[in-house]
Nucleic acid binder design. Sequence first.
DNA 1: GCAGTGATCATA
DNA 2: ATGATCACTGCC
Length: 194
Amino acid sequence: MRETPSKSASVRRAAARGFVLDRTFYARPALVVARHLLGKVLVRRIGGRELTAPIIETEAYLGPHDLASHASKGRTPRTEVMFGPAGCWYVYLIYGIHWMLNVVTNDVDHPAAVLIRGAGEWTGPARLTKAMSIDKSLNGAEAARSSGLWIEDRGIKMARGAIQRTPRIGVDYAGHWAARPYRFVVDAADLREV
DNA sequence: GCAGTGATCATA
DNA sequence: ATGATCACTGCC
């Protein structure tokens, strides 16, 4: 994608101005966090380099009553992180191959999280984690610079109508919860720098 | 359409 | 210890 020199400069300044989302952002209902993560920028530090990608697809997992959520099975070693403070990563392996990246939401002892399904050019939660070298070593870590994986607000805006809601993917086992529109998607073309 | 892949959890 | 399940992907 070609840009004029002045546009490139403004993008760099906008990036430098980005601020890291903190616990107050995540300590809200999963549906609110899932919606507001669209357009925020996932940042992964690997060595001295930073990989960045605007989030374009999320899913909310509400709590123990949500039969699509791992938390509906109760407190286990795997789900422990979801019972902890908001703003920590919940990373787990699925089908023996794929790492899934979630961020914990709500309050302590309210196990809820948002699955990050797509960012930048990467569609699909497993392709995203593969591209960003995300695995179990991040499970339980804070979404902060200290962990090497965090999310920033870089001022990207989108039209309200650009956001689509659909049922969540791959949770047909969850009865009527499978049909609830807890998946949020925005077309990358609808993201706008400010 | 469906195989691959192995952690996780319930059951025993 | 064993077996079922799985918030997916890639290849048929």
